[in-house]
Write a protein that binds this DNA or RNA. Structure first.
Lengths: 113, 113
DNA sequence: TTCATGTGTAAGAACTTTCTGACATGTGAA
DNA sequence: TTCACATGTCAGAAAGTTCTTACACATGAA
């Protein structure tokens, strides 16, 4: 996760530009965890956490994996992905060169996810 | 602009998490410019650019200065500020420690700007 | 069966962000 | 005076984000 395209960078920054999601990443940096437990840990509702994790995963900042616990329950574990982004005027300028043009470019929301 | 507080970091990331603002920073990285000209350069309306520049300036990413041109017109020049942010799981975790608590902390929107 | 645990998703309210189209100010030059 | 250029700001529409509440499913244990 270095030198992403302009659009990828926007997605990553948008994902991190939120206190709750920052806290989620920070908490996961201390070790992987499953959704329900993490929700209690942080003190937010499970659906809300679910939404934020989706956004973080879509940006490639966390990775989730569905696993079966010993007592047969389906547990979704999340952990932080490897990333190392550097933000300076130059790195931003370079990323900006690969931003999709609002004209003629692929419509409003990129296909596939 | 290194190791900002959690809230500052969120503000900076939010400011950069937008294609137009990324383009603005990228353009200014190529040299200072005044608002009207920059608006034509990028191809957006002046009020819109004004709004985005406000957001970037509030985040400390660009700096504006009102100057008088030789023919007496008031020109507002903007240039990129010096910043160098590194985003990794650890730097984020550290920044997250200084996030203001939604409980008891200062209400919804920090005073002063 | 009922309870406690885990998963996911959908609808709607509340709020924020983004953008356009006025409007108002000022200058110097024609 | 009128034009071309610069500045700023406001109101409202449109779209996006954030959050709650409620529903659905599954498992193992009491």
């Amino acid at each position: 996760m270095t030198r992403p395209t302009g659009d990828d960078l926007v997605e990553v920054l948008a994902a991190l530009a939120n206190p709750l999601r920052l806290r989620i990443v920070a908490t996961l940096a201390g070790g992987r965890d499953y959704v329900s437990h993490l929700a209690r840990e942080i003190g937010i509702s499970r659906p809300l956490l679910h939404m934020h994790l989706q956004r973080l995963e879509a940006a490639g900042l966390v990775v989730g994996s569905l696993e079966l616990s010993e007592d047969g329950k389906a547990m979704k574990y999340y952990e932080v992905a490897d990333f190392d982004l550097r933000l300076t005027a130059s790195t931003l300028a370079e990323a900006a060169r690969t931003l999709t043009d609002p004209e003629k470019g692929p419509g409003r929301k990129e296909r596939s996810r």
